[in-house]
Amino acid sequence: YETDHQDYCEVCQQGGEIILCDTCPRAYHMVCLDPDMEKAPEGKWSCPHCEKE
């Protein structure tokens, strides 16, 4: 199925295993987040940009 999420990391602009924000189209590698994540979040997750809003 098609999503509106970007298929690359917002921080480093590379693809790969990325996690998707449930609020906006941004996507991130877990290691590119500050602080980085050990494992993928369970349930709904909002990226740092959305958390600030």
Rank of each mutant, 00 (worst) to 15 (best):
P48A: 11
W45T: 13
E10R: 11
V11G: 14
Y1D: 00
K44P: 13
E2P: 15
T3Y: 12
V31T: 03
H49K: 06
D36I: 05
L20Y: 07
R26F: 04
E42N: 13
C12E: 01
K52E: 14
D22I: 12
W45G: 12
Q6L: 05
K39I: 08
A27F: 07
W45I: 12
Q14G: 11
E17T: 10
I18E: 12
G16Y: 05
S46I: 02
Y8R: 14
C21P: 00
M30K: 14
P48H: 10
Y1L: 04
P48C: 11
C24T: 01
R26L: 05
D36T: 13
A40D: 12
L20P: 14
C32Y: 00
Y1G: 15
I18Y: 05
T23M: 04
K39T: 06
D22N: 08
Y28A: 07
T23Q: 08
P41Y: 12
V11N: 15
H49N: 03
C47V: 00
Y28C: 02
E51S: 08
L33C: 12
E42R: 11
Q6G: 03
C32H: 09
E10Y: 14
D22V: 10
P25N: 14
D7A: 09
C32M: 01
D7M: 10
I19R: 12
D4V: 14
T3K: 15
I18H: 03
P25G: 10
Y8H: 15
W45D: 04
E17L: 04
E53P: 14
D7F: 02
C9W: 01
C47F: 02
W45L: 06
E2F: 15
V11S: 09
E51D: 08
C47Q: 01
M37S: 13
E53G: 05
D34H: 09
L20Q: 11
P48V: 10
W45V: 14
G16L: 11
I18G: 10
H49Y: 07
A40E: 08
S46D: 07
R26D: 05
M30H: 03
V11A: 09
A40Q: 06
D22Q: 13
K44Y: 04
I19Q: 08
C24H: 03
P25T: 06
P35T: 12
I18A: 08
E38S: 05
D22G: 11
I18V: 07
G43F: 03
E42C: 11
H5Q: 08
E53S: 11
D4M: 15
T23D: 10
C50W: 02
